[in-house]
Write a protein that binds this DNA or RNA. Structure first.
Lengths: 332, 332
DNA sequence: TCCGGCGATGATAGCGCTTGCAAGAGCATC
DNA sequence: GATGCTCTTGCAAGCGCTATCATCGCCGGA
């Protein structure tokens, strides 16, 4: 192993196999188009030289980078993690490389990340946040596919794959009402989606029960660490709610722990609803009633869209609704 | 916004600014080397054309991609998340793009990811897993910088930035002994690092107390969901331990919850030690005694190493010990 | 006045790959 | 035996940028 030796190039492989670089390139990208004999010769040459394709060069030449940017707010306690994990695995097995962009809890760095992604000439940008005015300008100019996930948005250019947050709010309201709860309190994170769920929930609750639900706001994201303060706020309410609706399983878990620590029983004294069906939800004591989002499905739809776009065909359905599932467990 | 228009290139900007492409390139990569006048002209031209550099082309030409691959086992319930988050932010602000590679809990896809990273000609690969025989061959041939984090490894080529897992085991043993615990039980994940901590812990405990610690093994990674089974196992032991040592705060949290659910008080009836100082550790009830790893520090050291290597200088210190800090809280 | 030196700029040869185009080979058809 | 296909292959022109080298003023010192 001569460490100083320059890495082998397509040309080296071609020379060794006694064919043209074009054939080697064809073999690598689509083995079937070369004859069996040359194919074998090339395969041998690749093995002997330890050739590793240079995808920078390949991307430049073909103007297809086979890279996809995944933009999310943050990593820890994130309700997106399961989706991102599924996304990353599906993308990898489809031959795409994932560029990770953390945009900050409030999307402070969203535009920077979009810009960086465009500079890398990614084939698509998958983001949990919508396009902003600035980013649409950028994207419009480059015609890069923009896929917004966890959302159904008709307005934004590009496609969106997700579910209706309004419907989630409505379903939760109906579910809790049917379970006989009387004084729900909703903890809404300071973001568009959570607000949509919150509004829909409150309206539907009013429609069902004729009474108003109470509400608290928290900084985005809804995380475990917020629970102490929120629980303390709850205790200060005129009437303690009988169920609290949260925007993430992490926060739900936190509230359950706080409630128990102060002697309340969950769900008897206080019930709690989560959101996201993170892996912890089914393992918590009590298990957490929550809303499941099918991350794998979102990932597959996203890849299908990327594939479709790369054929040059006209964009098809620009809004894909993957739905959600309310999972009734012990906590509410 | 003419969507069909080809994206502007360096040449377009140069033409518009009335300078050569070389000058534009210089301006972009190092604004100071061009005169103020041309600089201004170029800046205007860039703004007018909406130019976004093509980093694929740039990387090809300079053979510096300014991309760094970050390879981790998985995303959810991961003790690495805080480190990765820090890493990603530091890298982004240093102008690097992060390639995310999920290698699978047992590193099933480690080699694939290394190969993909090399094909992208990343400037460095940062991984939590060590090089394997196959990957060293690959890396040796390409002379790409390999940085192993969360580990101190003299053997592997490349550099490693982390801490001594043996020392962690020893410190935990001493700490628990000094707190007066008598029957520790250690839950060891099925991975090299956890084993190192486990062995060191057991030896040191024996040395301190003259008695053996009991041990259980779990599948890697140590996650929240394992807690039920482990706790059940604990109850079946001849003598219930008075403290259990885990490999992650998630698992520790799970055990605390199980213990409480079955009527035990933590730490009075059963104490629990975590590992990693994830954000939840300080917010749990009771707060979790754990070991803190300075993720930001690891990130900064990694970037320093990448910077150093890119100057072409000889590799400096190949093992950087960032240490760790045992944080005594309520759970043990 | 002349020359060395220096800062700023342009011309240009690649970086390693992809792909349209053309050409050669093999073969069935009439 | 000529014609027209299909299947493989090679040639060569880029893809958009960086970096080396040469050039051109211009200033200070001799």
């Amino acid at each position: 192993m001569n460490k100083a030796a320059k890495t082998a190039t397509l040309g080296d492989v071609a020379a060794r196999a006694g064919v043209s670089t074009a054939s080697v390139s064809r073999y690598i990208n689509n083995p079937d188009v070369v004859s069996a004999d040359t194919g074998q010769a090339i395969a041998d040459a690749i093995a002997e030289t330890g050739y590793i394709p240079n995808l920078l060069a390949g991307g430049l030449a073909s103007s297809k980078s086979r890279m996809v940017a995944v933009l999310i707010p943050h990593l820890s306690d994130s309700i997106f993690n399961d989706t991102i994990e599924a996304m990353s695995e599906e993308l990898a097995s489809a031959g795409f490389t994932v560029l990770l962009g953390l945009t900050g809890p409030k999307g402070e760095r969203h535009e920077d990340m979009v810009r960086a992604s465009l500079a890398r000439r990614v084939d698509a940008i998958i983001a949990t946040a919508p396009q902003t005015q600035n980013t649409s300008d950028l994207l419009g100019r480059s015609s890069t596919l923009f896929i917004q996930i966890w959302e159904l948005s008709e307005e934004t250019p590009g496609i969106s794959i997700g579910f209706s947050h309004e419907d989630v709010g409505i379903d939760i309201a109906r579910f809790l009402f049917s379970r006989g709860f009387a004084r729900p309190h909703i903890v809404t994170a300071d973001g568009v989606r959570a607000r949509k769920r919150g509004e829909a929930f409150k309206q539907e609750w009013l429609a069902q029960s004729g009474r108003e639900a109470t509400e608290t706001f928290v900084d985005i994201p809804s995380r475990f660490g917020h629970a102490r303060r929120i629980f303390a706020d709850l205790r200060r309410l005129d009437a303690m709610p009988d169920v609290v609706v949260t925007g993430s399983d992490y926060l739900a878990q936190g509230l359950i722990i706080e409630a128990q620590a102060s002697g309340l029983k969950v769900p008897e004294d206080l019930a709690v609803m989560g959101f996201g069906n993170s892996s912890l939800a089914g393992d918590m004591r009590p298990t957490i009633t929550t809303v499941d989002i099918d991350g794998k499905r979102i990932a597959r739809e996203a890849i299908a869209a990327i594939r479709h776009a790369s054929t040059g065909a006209e964009p098809q359905a620009s809004v894909v609704n993957v739905g959600f599932r309310l999972i009734a467990r012990e906590s509410a």
